[in-house]
């Protein structure tokens, strides 16, 4: 109940965007059953929003520690390339394990740079953002690696009880992440570290391990997103998979009301933020407006959503401005 109240602005904004979508496309809410799965624009919103939603699950934790992970898009490309290149020769568990392990290693690398070597997060993750896509291209040799494995394809195009698999994976991952951070004291430690790292360390929190853990988790989430993206197009496109999605993930987290300075976070609001962004994208596609307007419309809607939260933003800026 409390969480619902805290997320009211985001929920309202999401409903408003859905309403706007319904206005530009009368068939927006229509849904029917086809080939054992739900079919409709609203389903597309969740299905297409899945990769960014997965990214935002990791990103929101990183942002809560006061960091940022620019490499998630590139990690998606790497994990997708790994999955696609193994898909036709290995069973699905091996493919998944390899892709997720790759993401975890990428995340640990970021965490190492930030937590141990104390490089600023934006710089540290920029390294993998740039190099990662190159690594992915090395794996794919610059081509789009296609695969025929129906098992892997199922993760992108399949459905469970009518719900598209990517959506199932998002909610599965949301539950796992919730259990991991809210079922333990990790969530508190992440918020404390992001709120005041010095004080947290003096209170005995292993802020280094906390930081390492959130980047590792972000890498893992990004890898899963990469697998979903590859499974969706039945191939790994190292040049384009996850391109600029790190920015959408950061936007989702901001829309979720997290401060980029660190501190409080909400997992489900971050996921909601990702779906909100996708609802916007889908609405633009359905509207039939010329593509030259896409980015302008998107910017205007984002601005509107952020203004919706403005009382909170105003409160935050007041706090920041008050003398120390």
């Amino acid at each position: 109940m409390r969480a619902l109240r805290a997320g009211a602005p985001q929920l309202l904004a999401f409903l408003a965007v859905l309403l706007a979508d319904r206005l530009v496309a009368p068939q927006f809410l229509a849904m029917h059953w086809q080939d054992g799965r739900l079919f409709g624009s609203l389903v597309d919103v969740f299905n297409r929003g899945a990769p960014v939603a997965l990214l935002s699950l990791g990103m929101v934790l990183v942002v809560a520690t006061g960091g940022i992970d620019l490499s998630v898009g590139a990690v998606m490309a790497i994990a997708g390339a790994v999955a696609a290149s193994l898909a036709d020769s290995q069973p699905l568990p091996v493919v998944l394990a390899a892709a997720l392990a790759t993401g975890l290693v990428c995340g640990l690398w970021n965490g190492l740079l930030v937590a141990v070597l104390r490089i600023q997060p934006i710089v540290a993750t920029l390294i993998l953002m740039v190099a990662g896509r190159g690594i992915a291209q090395l794996i794919t040799e610059g081509r789009i690696i296609t695969f025929a494995s129906a098992d892997l394809a199922f993760l992108g195009g399949g459905a469970l009880l009518g719900v598209p698999m990517p959506v199932v994976l998002v909610f599965g991952m949301l539950l796992v992440t919730l259990a991991l951070v809210r079922g333990t004291a990790l969530g508190l430690m992440i918020e404390a570290t992001g709120g005041n790292a010095r004080a947290s360390a003096l209170a005995g929190i292993d802020t280094r391990a906390v930081t390492l853990a959130v980047y590792a988790w972000s890498g893992l989430c990004a890898a899963l997103a990469g697998v979903v993206a590859a499974a969706d197009i039945l191939g790994a496109d190292a040049n384009n998979a996850g391109l600029w999605l790190e920015l959408d993930a950061i936007l989702a987290v901001v829309v979720a009301g997290s401060s980029l300075l660190g501190g409080r976070f909400s997992l489900w609001l971050a996921v909601l933020g990702a779906f909100l962004i996708q609802a916007m994208n889908t609405g633009i596609l359905l509207s039939g407006l010329p593509p030259e307007l896409n980015l302008v419309v998107k910017a205007a809607v984002v601005l509107a959503v952020l203004l919706l939260q403005s009382p909170r933003l105003a409160g935050l800026s007041l706090l920041l401005r008050s003398p120390r």
């Binding site: 789009i144 197009i233 384009n240 998979a241 994208n281 596609l285």
Partner: peptide, 8 residues
């Protein structure tokens, strides 16, 4: 020009 966006 990408597969993913083409599909979407």
């Amino acid at each position: 020009f990408t597969r993913a966006k083409g599909k979407e």
